[in-house]
């Protein structure tokens, strides 16, 4: 007590100044609406004032060498979009190669339940196994956009292929045209639906839901026009990188790191 009294007496004026400043600052925070973001920015530069969204070039990279087949991405996706059962915006495939070079692929329930048990009944011992997550390829030349008779499927200026469910007539032509089978008809809305790379999240600077939940960072997303981004570095380093079905000519923006020749 004596010490505090001494302190106060030493610089009473400075003490009052500090208390007053703190009170005013605290009151101001209550009066002025908070401008701080609730969730921290996940894609660098997205919320910058000079950020032009349409100038960005987003890419998605799936690292096959990292995926552990836990199915978290599928769970996150189903929760994010309330995806009806037996339809898949994203799924994870399990590849097994035996020592006779036989290739066995499965994806029970789209990998939603995770791969907790080894596959049974295969004739020969397993030589190699890996997981391949699949999602919309966001093609530069998308077949679905080409064939949609009413323009309900369209490409935004920032390169996202989206579906307007208020325009879709439900003809399923886009489903026939997509070489990657990422589309389905939602039995509730009776319109075409597919992965959007979480456009609504990306526009707010957040990563796609599946990317943010991946525990091993096998799903990567970013802006290729940002040379400091991880995706830029990966695509400009000497990795084994490819896209799915390149001979289709759709030029996907979904790249696979460590893609194996068995993967279709």
């Amino acid at each position: 007590m004596i010490d505090i009294k001494k302190e106060i007496q030493q610089d009473r004026r400075a003490f009052i100044k500090k208390v007053l400043g703190g009170t005013i600052a605290g009151s101001l925070l209550l009066v002025i609406p908070a401008t701080a973001q609730e969730v921290a920015e996940e894609i660098p530069g997205m919320r910058a004032e000079d950020s032009v969204f349409t100038k960005k070039k987003f890419v998605f990279i799936v690292d096959i060498t990292a995926c552990i087949g836990c199915g978290s991405c599928c769970v996150a996706d189903k929760a994010e979009y309330n995806v009806p059962d037996h339809n898949y915006r994203t799924w994870v495939e399990r590849y097994i190669i035996d020592d006779h070079d036989g290739v066995y692929v499965d994806s029970p329930n789209g990998g939603l339940d995770g791969y907790t048990k080894p596959r049974e009944g295969l004739p020969y011992p397993t030589r190699d196994t890996f997981f391949v997550p699949k999602l919309c390829n966001m093609c530069e030349d998308p077949s679905c956009v080409q064939v949609c008779p009413v323009g309900a499927t369209y490409k935004t200026n920032d390169g996202f292929v989206l579906v307007d469910k208020t325009r879709c007539v439900g003809c399923s032509y886009c489903i026939q045209a997509c070489p990657y089978s990422v589309r389905f008809i939602n039995p509730v809305t009776r319109t075409a639906e597919k992965c959007t790379w979480c456009y609504h999240r990306v526009r707010k600077g957040l990563l796609p839901a599946c990317v943010s939940v991946c525990p091993v960072h096998a799903r990567k997303f970013g802006d290729l026009s940002d040379k400091t981004s991880e995706v830029w570095k990966i695509l400009h380093e000497p990795h084994v990188i490819s896209v799915l079905k390149p001979d289709m000519g759709n030029k996907p923006a979904l790249h696979y790191l460590g893609l194996r020749r068995e993967v279709v």
């Binding site: 956009v145 080409q146 064939v147 949609c148 008779p149 009413v150 323009g151 325009r167 879709c168 007539v169 439900g170 003809c171 399923s172 032509y173 008809i185 009776r190 319109t191």
Partner: peptide
Amino acid sequence: LHLGHPERSYSMLITPNPTSAMA
């Protein structure tokens, strides 16, 4: 009968997508 939304089929005539074979 096949269309999910036959009530919107008129939009194939009003706002057709020129690149679509179906339009």
